[in-house]
Amino acid sequence: MSGINLLQSKIEVVNIGLPLFAEALAVQDIPVVQVDWTPPAGGDERLIELLDLLSE
């Protein structure tokens, strides 16, 4: 058993990064939400480490 049930599901996408991938899905009527991604904490490694330690 793979445990993966994605292949039996209808695809709905969160697109993190290049908008062209979301645009391609949108024209096919595949549900997609674009994330306006920027580097977390301005890309500061120390702060990202703290965010990871303090999240979830």
Binding site: A41, L50, L53, L54
Partner: peptide, 15 residues
């Protein structure tokens, strides 16, 4: 917020 996160993390005993 950056300073606050540092201090908060220290208070939580992480990082």
């Amino acid at each position: 917020f950056e300073q606050a996160l540092e201090a908060f993390a220290a208070g939580m005993g992480v990082g």
